[in-house]
């Protein structure tokens, strides 16, 4: 798929990224379908094509600073051979996908796209995410505006990659970030403050002014319920994958609750990348 060179990037009032921040655009390989972004982030955006799912403008804008893989997928029941659906719907699906890709390109993001007919969307997400080295996957929901991002942080591990991605996304925008930790007991609050403090520092280090970062520590023994409640006041939630796969994450996993209750999009940071950071 084509990519818009940086100099053609339409001016959208964003500041230029400050020094030290990995350039999301400049270092993209020219025809970079399968090559992973060198040090930027790459977000997989599955779009249920042919069923009228649209990518909200606010999402397109928010992702303008990272590499994006648009995965147009059409789920077919097992009574139907995937080739059968392809024979009939391919052209229409390709057209719809081209529209979505066009929107991302207009916003300036380097875009790759895939169209898949599948019986099992979760398997497809996982496969494409691995093939195209996406470090996160955005589960679309309606998003009229994106002003506030919620980043629940569980523990010391994984923080760096998640925060790095968040920093890249919000740099040069007015998006506010809430770092949230749910402590199970009051004694853990100090540690949590320290944890969020260092996360906020990292975030500020890659271009987010301090006043846009809020830190919240809540003491509650039902962390997921709490996260879901706080998420209601935010537009997008960023969560780290806690099980080996996105499939588990969505169907058999604590974050099911977050994804289900969230009215806004959920950005899931994939586990292999998180583990990489742990080392």
């Amino acid at each position: 798929m084509s990519e818009t060179p940086p100099d053609e990037r339409p001016s959208d009032g964003r500041e230029e990224p400050p020094d030290g921040r990995p350039s999301a655009n400049g270092e993209e390989p020219v025809d970079g379908d399968d090559t992973p972004p060198r040090d930027g982030h790459r977000v997989l955006v599955p779009v249920e094509i042919l069923r009228g799912e649209a990518v909200p403008d606010a999402v397109v804008e928010a992702l303008a600073s990272v590499s994006v893989v648009v995965l147009g997928y059409h789920e077919i029941p097992e009574q139907t051979a995937p080739g059968q659906a392809r024979m009939q719907f391919e052209e229409r699906a390709q057209n719809e996908l081209a529209d979505v890709v066009g929107a991302f390109e207009a916003a300036g993001a380097p875009v790759t796209s895939r169209l898949v007919f599948t019986h099992d969307p979760m398997k497809t997400f996982e496969r494409i995410a691995v093939e195209l080295s996406c470090d996160s996957i955005l589960l679309l929901r309606a998003a009229p505006t994106i002003d506030r991002l919620l980043v629940p942080i569980r523990g010391n591990v994984n923080v760096e990659h998640i925060v790095g991605l968040v920093g890249t996304l919000v740099a040069g925008t007015d998006i506010e970030v809430t770092l949230l930790h749910v402590a199970s007991e009051p004694e853990a609050v100090d540690d949590a403050e320290a944890l969020l403090g260092s996360a906020a520092e990292t975030l500020a280090g890659i271009g987010s002014e301090g006043e846009r970062i809020r830190r919240t520590v809540v003491v509650d023994d039902r962390p997921l319920e709490t996260i879901a409640e706080v998420a209601e006041d935010h537009d997008v939630t960023v969560v780290g994958e806690s099980r080996p796969s996105i499939r588990d994450r969505i169907f058999g996993d604590p974050s099911e609750l977050i994804a289900e209750r969230s009215v806004g999009p959920v950005l899931v940071v994939r586990r292999p990348y998180l583990e990489l950071d742990e080392e």
């Binding site: 995937p82 391919e90 699906a93 169209l115 007919f117 019986h119």
Partner: peptide, 22 residues
């Protein structure tokens, strides 16, 4: 007519359309 490249997890056709193997 069902040409395309067969991989372990999908059949990939020219034009970038893939059929997932499930």
């Amino acid at each position: 007519p069902e040409s395309g490249t067969v991989t372990e997890d999908a059949t990939r056709h020219e034009g970038g359309t893939e059929l997932e193997r499930t």
